[in-house]
Nucleic acid binder design. Structure first.
Lengths: 139, 139
DNA sequence: GCAATAACTGACAAAATTGTTAGTGATCAA
DNA sequence: TTGATCACTAACAATTTTGTCAGTTATTGC
């Protein structure tokens, strides 16, 4: 559990207060969270389906990540009626659904540069007298 | 330093391989990273300016976060000529610049729900015989 | 009666991240 | 010559995250 007297905790809280960017990042910063949200959005909405998709995750860890996503209201658990043993479905809330395209854009961003897009340092802004370049040079 | 034989490391690598979403998330998952990228994008491009903006960060930690962002090619360091003691500027690369609007959208997403947007569970998709509802009931 | 299934929880260990302390070098200003 | 500034680094401690192991509940099928 979190130590509320630690410097780390205080720093985290002050960043959360400063801007929602920081709490948003922390909500998606678990080892498996982005992938879990993605898989649920694709219809893999059962515990055992997620385990199949993520063969290296342990039950304990999967349960923990799901619980954290639930605490952040990104998903909810629903019992499936008339199933035995009682089945549970994980459903993205509107908040979770809204997150999916943002994760997608993070994905494309990462992919673009992983696939070899050149890293450059954008030219520094200068005040250039554009007018001069626009003079037509008619011979 | 990272232990290359740990389960955690192996899991991380397999997620990175599965989808760039996961490496992208890990690139922005430091305690201060999102805020640092934002401040640099706003022109706070010097070490001491970042320290002013983030009064609770220690020099060591700031240097470490900057180094990690540099390792991920989100920013580069540049010496400022003719400064004494030698000044260093932090400049976002094109990769870093492209990240900024994604961080902004994470920010708006967080803010929307922090500001009280209701959390709902979207209605489940059903196959509904729409035709029936479209019958006009003329008395 | 025994195993299997689904979906967990608690306690603990391993590893990773974050924070702290002390020190670096070069130069200028008092 | 002492102190200040800038931008760090190494070594270590505190805290947090991740992973492991064992156990739980309730029901069905063999």
């Amino acid at each position: 559990m979190r130590k509320k007297e630690s410097t780390d905790y205080a720093n985290e809280q002050s960043l959360f207060q400063l801007c929602e960017r920081n709490s948003a990042i922390s909500m998606i910063s678990g080892r498996w969270k982005g992938q879990i949200v993605y898989y649920i959005s694709q219809g893999n909405d059962r515990f055992h389906l997620l385990q199949q998709k993520l063969p290296n995750i342990s039950e304990t860890v999967l349960a923990r990540q799901l619980k954290e996503l639930e605490n952040h209201a990104i998903l909810v658990k629903r019992e499936i009626p008339n199933t035995v043993p009682a089945g549970i479905k994980y459903i993205l809330t509107n908040k979770g659904v809204d997150l999916v395209p943002i994760l997608d854009s993070l994905c494309s961003w990462g992919k673009l540069y992983a696939d070899g897009k050149k890293i450059i340092v954008p030219a520094e802004k200068r005040t250039i007298a554009i007018a001069e370049t626009e003079v037509e040079l008619i011979p």
